[in-house]
Design a protein around this nucleic acid. Structure first.
Length: 593
RNA sequence: GGUCCGGUAGCUCAGCUGGAUAGAGCAACAGCCUUCUAAGCUGUGGGUCUUGAGUUCGAAUCUCAACCGGAUCACCA
């Protein structure tokens, strides 16, 4: 029986009134006071019709007498501090110890299916820091949803069509024909990105010349021959011109192999990838269907709109007068294809907060079109990543490239490890492996520990630290726990399935068990608020607590054999929770470092 | 201008379903390596929780207003 229900029972027996469990506020007792859990009695005063001290006193007395787990209590003002019996903590530890996947719920046959869309890159440039936040959040969220018992399908919608790709294609044709990842030694996505930049540069030059000849900016843009050629290329692509389509698919395939490399190194993956080139036509069909049903309306020029004024929003364009589709149309099409492919109960879009309005509209539109998940779709909106000098601007070359960043992190990890002599007893393979895990761990944790909806500042030079609230600090603690367990095994100490009751367990250790046990609730909470940051900050607190314990107590040198085993079991389960928690963030933990 | 989001220590961030004296890390300063890994631990200093009102026994947390910052309101994606 949970303590909350014990309290409700106490109240009903003492004061003859039933209260919902949600009204029972049980919280962790503050360090300064004695006890483990604190019941705030103020909300109960109306029921007890007594003053706070009396109410707390009576409730405490009742609980102590009737609930075996509660060993003692004390009352300070309106706060009833409860002390849990040592054996109760040991029981709790044994429960955790017996459960290999403590805190993680497995999806059953009838579990709801959630589809999570994330990453969603354009194929005209490499992934940058913003994508890194997106990818990490999306992957982590998928793991968290799985841990909460959902079936999860990870998906990626690749924006592989449009004028931006044509710009890269045109630049390649004009100024770089023959260049390939093989011939240049460049990663495919970087190669294409370079051509995109080159197009922009030449286009600007052309504009300058035209403006020098006396044209206004708008006139120059209208007369630009480069832009006209790019548009012509898009027309040819849409018309299915074989040569253009072939070039398009060749260049896209270069980009994809580049992306795959980056995804792989980041440790993220997808169950199903959709391409806009394959979904935008479906979107048109959906919109036309909606038009026939009278959900949408047509203007005189032939463009199709949705009237959302009833929902407090504006009118929204869905098809242009020339029949071509817009962003919204494509998302509707993609939704349709997804729903045909999977029995989706819940749809989560991991997309930046600049698109809040878009998803508000999409939700309404999908709902009108009859999609089950439309109304309840979750736009997992996250803030932008800014640099100390401000926003990233591709035009000013201040974009932080994902591949460069990862490489830099791993190099820093290697350098720091070497300086500290951590790699001295490792083979080269081990060292490479550890350094990779630590570098990526630092990056991932740094990004995931921040509340997603907030904008965050990322200082590539200074922000990434290996001390304090960081990935490597947590990884380090895990490695040390494994080390202690290894040494124990070498000494021939076998860990039993259960620790025996009656040990002289310290307050610090009881608190640690309490913190480990909290993992279950934390995983659920993270799933409810869709935030990996909840997990990250929890693990940090736990690790910090353990580190203090580690320094204050002897584990292997403990004389009392039963106490030694208890501490090993405790350590082992803290290690287990750290590993599970970090896995929910997509971060690996090494056994030594 | 309308809508949405943010504002907590010098910096980066927790805490926000209202609870006790607002917490970490970094940076600064002072200690601790013959003891299971010092990527660690301990201590000191550092705060008008943007401001003002309201609700309440109690407000960083809820409500309203103001101020600052960001996003968005495209026949771009």
């Amino acid at each position: 029986m949970s303590l909350q229900s014990s309290v409700t029972q106490a109240i009903s027996n003492l004061y003859n009134q039933e209260i919902p469990e949600s009204q029972v506020q049980l919280q962790k007792t503050k360090k300064e006071f004695e006890g483990h859990l604190t019941l705030v009695v103020f909300p109960l005063l109306k029921i007890s019709k007594k003053n706070p001290e009396q109410t707390a006193e009576e409730t405490g007395k009742y609980l102590k007498q009737n609930v075996p787990a509660i060993a003692d209590y004390n009352v300070i003002k309106g706060f009833l501090n409860l002390t849990i019996s040592p054996d109760h903590w040991l029981e709790l530890l044994n429960e955790i110890h017996a459960d290999a996947d403590y805190g993680l719920t497995k999806a059953g046959e009838n579990a709801p299916l959630v589809m999570i869309e994330y990453s969603s890159p354009n194929t005209n440039k490499p992934l940058h820091l913003g994508h890194v936040r997106n990818n990490l959040l999306g992957f982590s969220l998928a793991e968290i949803m799985k841990a909460n018992g959902y079936k999860v399908v990870k998906t990626n919608i690749v924006n592989d069509r449009g004028i931006h790709i044509c710009k890269s294609m045109l630049a390649w044709k004009k100024w770089g024909e023959g260049a390939s990842p093989e011939s240049t030694g460049k990663k495919g996505d970087h190669l294409i990105g370079d051509f995109y930049v080159l197009f922009d540069k030449r286009y600007k030059e052309e504009l300058r010349v035209l403006e020098f000849q006396g044209l206004k900016k708008e006139e120059a843009e209208a007369q630009s021959s480069l832009m006209a050629e790019a548009r012509e290329m898009l027309r040819q692509w849409e018309a299915g011109d074989p040569e253009t389509v072939q070039l398009w698919s060749m260049m896209n395939s270069w980009v994809y192999s580049g992306f795959d490399e980056t995804y792989k190194r980041m440790g993220v993956d997808f169950d199903k990838i959709y391409y806009e080139s394959e979904t935008y036509l479906t979107g048109k069909e959906q919109v036309m269907g909606g038009l026939q049903k009278g959900i949408f309306y047509e203007k005189e020029d032939g463009s199709v709109w949705a009237d959302l004024t009833a929902d407090g929003l504006d009118n929204k364009l869905l098809l242009r007068a020339d029949g071509t589709s817009v962003y919204m149309t494509q998302d509707i099409g993609t939704a349709k294809l997804r729903f045909d492919d999977y029995p989706i109960n819940k749809m989560v879009y991991v997309v930046g907060n600049e698109q809040n309005y878009h998803f508000q509209v999409l939700s309404i539109l999908l709902d009108k079109l009859g999609f089950e998940f439309g109304k309840g779709l979750v736009h997992f909106s996250y803030g932008m990543v800014e640099l100390p000098e401000g926003k990233m601007k591709s035009r000013e070359g201040t974009v932080v490239d994902a591949d460069d960043l990862i490489e830099e992190m791993v190099q820093t990890a290697r350098q720091t490890s070497e300086e500290l002599g951590k790699l001295d007893n490792c083979t080269k393979e081990e060292a490479d492996h550890i350094v990779e895990i630590v570098g990526l761990g630092a990056l991932k944790y740094f990004i995931l520990k921040v509340d997603p909806k907030k904008n965050m500042t990322f200082n590539p030079k200074e922000s990434i630290d290996f001390n304090g609230n960081t990935g490597p600090f947590i990884q380090y603690t895990h490695a040390r726990i494994q080390s202690v367990l290894r040494k124990a095994a070498e000494q021939g100490i076998a860990l039993p399935e259960k620790v025996q009751p009656g040990l002289p367990v310290s307050t610090k250790e009881e608190e640690l068990i309490q913190s480990v046990a909290a993992f279950k609730d934390i995983v659920r909470e993270a799933g409810e608020v869709y935030s990996p940051a909840v997990i990250a900050n929890y693990i940090y607190e736990l690790v910090k607590e353990y580190n203090q314990f580690y320094h204050d107590f002897s584990i292997l040198r403990e004389e009392n054999e039963n106490l030694k085993i208890f501490r090993l079991v405790l350590s082992k389960n803290i290690g287990k929770v750290i590993r599970s928690g970090m896995a929910l963030l997509g971060i690996q933990v090494p056994d030594r470092m």
